[in-house]
Simulated scan of single mutants.
Amino acid sequence: MTTASELKDELMRVRRDARELHSHDDVQAAIGRVAVQLTTDYSERFPVFVTIMNGGIVFAGQLLTRLDFPLEVDYLHASRYLGETSGGDVQWIVTPTASLAGRDVVILDDILDVGNTLLAIIEACKAQGAATVSTCVLVDKVHDRKARPGLKADYTALEAEDHYLFGMGMDYKGYWRNAPGIFALDAEEG
């Protein structure tokens, strides 16, 4: 059993040894570019932005305040990780309360890795009668293991190497979502 002191030592070591892939300033500039794209595409509509918890919360908080048009905000919680560093089956924890029927839905998340969770959420929104469903992610992890060949989000702020990532909403064992940039761990760390 890991003590609190051992956990803190591990977390501090992980943060210290991680490589910064995108600085806080880089992330902010990328979020600004996505905000412009979303404003162009949605300012004449009445969309609902659905944030995937917990990872999407930092991205959503920084993106939504840059969108100066009426929109509704909701959230859902579906996860394949639940505190682990590798994913299992999608588990639904909380579903959106807003009616998605006939609505333009934009799903906000921190990362598009393999994409199984995102694909399951898209299908769930369509099943609830969404008129359109778009995806918007902070980071697209570049690799060839996507759930569907060529899977991409409709809006992507940044791309990142195929490493275990944390920061700006992405976590390491439930911690470091608050790290002010996007950081990568070497293969033996994650």
Results as ranks from 00 to 15, higher is better:
Val114Thr: 15
Phe69Thr: 08
Cys125Trp: 04
Arg66Cys: 04
Met12Asn: 14
Tyr75Arg: 09
Cys136Leu: 09
Glu20Val: 15
Asp140Leu: 07
Tyr42Leu: 15
Tyr164His: 07
Met1Tyr: 00
Leu138Thr: 07
Asp68Lys: 13
Ala157Gln: 05
Val48Trp: 01
Leu76Asp: 04
Val133His: 05
Asp109Gly: 05
Ala30Trp: 01
Gly32Glu: 04
Phe69Gly: 11
Thr156Tyr: 10
Arg66His: 13
Ala147Glu: 14
Asp186Cys: 00
Ala30Gln: 06
Arg16Leu: 06
Thr132Phe: 05
Arg19Cys: 02
Asp162Phe: 11
Glu6Tyr: 02
Tyr175Trp: 12
Ser79Gln: 11
Gly83Lys: 12
Phe183Gln: 04
Gly115Pro: 14
Gln91Gly: 02
His77Ala: 13
Val94Gly: 01
Arg103Phe: 11
Arg15Met: 11
Gly83Asn: 07
Arg148Asp: 03
Asn116Pro: 00
Val142Gln: 15
Ala130Phe: 07
Val58Asn: 02
Asp9Cys: 05
Ala124Tyr: 15
Val90Asn: 06
Glu159Ser: 12
Leu71Thr: 00
Arg15Lys: 15
Asp154Ala: 04
Ala147Pro: 13
Phe59Leu: 03
Leu76Cys: 14
Ile121Gln: 00
Ala29Thr: 11
Gly150Ser: 09
Asp154Ile: 08
Ser23Ala: 06
Arg15Phe: 14
Met170Thr: 02
Asn178Ala: 04
Leu38Gly: 07
Met168Asp: 02
Phe183Val: 01
Val48Ile: 04
Leu11Val: 10
Asp171Gln: 02
Glu189Pro: 00
Glu44Pro: 00
Tyr164Ala: 01
Asp140Pro: 08
Val114Lys: 15
Asn116Cys: 05
Glu189Phe: 00
Lys141Phe: 09
Thr65Met: 11
Ala18His: 07
Gln91Val: 15
Leu63Asp: 02
Glu44Phe: 06
Glu84Asn: 14
Glu72Cys: 00
Gly181Pro: 03
Leu38Trp: 05
Lys152Val: 07
Ala157Asp: 03
Met53Arg: 08
Thr156Glu: 10
Val50Thr: 02
